[in-house]
Simulated scan of single mutants.
Amino acid sequence: MEPIHRPGPLTEITNEEVIYQNPLLFLKIWEMMHETPQAGPPSDWGWHSHMQVEFLLVAQGQLGVQTKHDYTVMTPGDIMVFGSSQPHRTHTYAPGPLRQIVFQLDLKQHFDLSTMPYLHRFSELTHPLEAFNEVFRDNPAVKQEAYTLVMQIYEESQSRKIGYELAISAAIKNLLLLLLRNDHRDFSGVTEDSGISRVRPALDYIDKHLSERITVEDVCSVLNLSYHYFIKYFKKVMGISFVDYVNYKRIKKAERLLLTGDLSIMEVSYEVGILNMAQFYKLFKRHNQCSPKEFKQRMRSQVDVIPFLAQAD
Rank of each mutant, 00 (worst) to 15 (best):
K143S: 11
Q144F: 01
E145F: 01
T148S: 05
L149Y: 00
L149R: 00
V150P: 02
V150T: 03
Q152E: 06
Y154K: 00
E155T: 01
E156V: 02
E156F: 12
S157D: 03
S157Y: 07
S157E: 01
Q158G: 00
R160G: 05
K161P: 00
I162R: 13
Y164M: 00
L166V: 10
L166M: 09
A167N: 13
I168H: 03
S169P: 03
A170I: 04
A171E: 07
I172D: 06
I172R: 11
K173R: 14
N174C: 05
L177Q: 12
L177A: 14
L179E: 09
L179H: 10
L179V: 04
L180V: 02
L180I: 06
N182Q: 10
N182F: 11
H184G: 06
H184E: 07
R185L: 08
D186S: 07
S188L: 09
V190Q: 09
V190A: 03
T191R: 01
E192P: 00
E192I: 00
E192A: 11
S194W: 05
S197W: 06
S197N: 10
R198P: 00
R200M: 15
R200K: 14
P201H: 09
A202F: 07
A202G: 12
L203C: 08
Y205H: 15
D207M: 12
S211L: 03
E212H: 14
E212I: 02
R213H: 12
T215K: 06
V216S: 11
V216M: 14
E217K: 15
D218M: 15
V219R: 05
C220P: 02
C220S: 11
C220N: 07
C220H: 08
S221A: 14
L223I: 11
N224S: 15
S226E: 14
Y227T: 09
F230P: 07
K232G: 04
K235F: 05
K236I: 03
K236A: 14
V237C: 10
V237Y: 11
M238S: 08
G239P: 06
G239H: 10
S241G: 15
F242R: 08
F242G: 06
D244A: 15
Y245S: 05
V246F: 07
V246A: 09
I251G: 03
I251R: 04
K252D: 08
K253I: 01
A254V: 07
A254P: 08
E255T: 05
R256N: 10
R256F: 07
L259A: 13
L259K: 12
T260V: 13
